[in-house]
Amino acid sequence: MTSSPLATYQPDQRAASLIGGEATDANLRRYLHGIPGIDAVGLEARAADLGTRSIKTSSKRWAIDTIIGLIDLTTLEGADTPGKVRSLVAKALVPDPGDPGCPRVAAVCVYGDMVGTAVTALGSAHAAGGTEGAGVQRVHVAAVATAFPSGRASLAIKLADVRDSVAAGADEIDMVIDRGAFLAGRFGQVYDEIVAVKDACRRADGSVAHLKVILETGELNTYDNVRRASWLAILAGGDFIKTSTGKVAPAATLPVTLSMLEVVRDWHRLTGVRIGVKPAGGIRTSKDAIKYLVTVAETVGEEWLVPHLFRFGASSLLNDVLLQRQKMTTGHYSGPDYVTID
């Protein structure tokens, strides 16, 4: 698959070659509507079936540590303060003070105005510009941008929002698509915005912040829409497709994530390029998170279970995983007072 010439193309070349022309509404519609549909019953049944896998003993131990390393530890509240963010960063670096062997999370995810605070708090452990050596996982800073969560602002505002965060040191930008434009059929507009945001992710030194494209699947409503939006986001150059902002119910579900993983799998078959997937919101227990690991492993392959290809957007998940981890380490059940609140 990696022999596909599409692998060497720039995103815009690749999109043009696949959709057979400019990214106009009409061309995109023709392409996106040519993608096979989804039967919701079958999709949900498959997800439920994957959810019955029984992950025990050594597999579970591996899964627990893997989950921690895939978490984007998140705080996205109007009430966020520098203190809250510093506390979050501390938790990201040392999730379990009682066990120094506990891995770090992948990233902290904050609003754009908190990026600087997070970068400072991470210090040498920050992914970009950090000084910690090999063997230690450095932690990324992800910023939500583009008038998160609604995305209802002018393009100029959205791009300024992105540039601010990148300039403040964000390693990753979690943008939202314009669901209104998507639902109205203005696929070209959605596409162009993603391209513009990707461009705004470029730093002065020429490097580029990773772009996660939030589809807000709860608002897209149907699986066919999710699938088309996934293709659209990838065509436009997104590095990750992400389910939700966490501000709209339903947020991530296993069937939605499965449908997005299927797109990522098909994109890899087609182009040889690997795209990441981030379910966000609603995943609160290690039992649920393990179902996602199983779904990733059996849909795209376990090579996807690395931070640059899969993330959990979550806040309370970490503590449940830590409780499970303590249980596996000590052999007895732990309690909420034995994990830190953030």
């Binding site: 992950i55 025990k56 003993t57 597999s59 579970k60 279970l305």
Partner: peptide, 10 residues
């Protein structure tokens, strides 16, 4: 180990 070699769950 490979994750997909799920440990036995009899």
């Amino acid at each position: 180990m490979k994750f997909l070699d799920y440990a036995p769950a009899p």
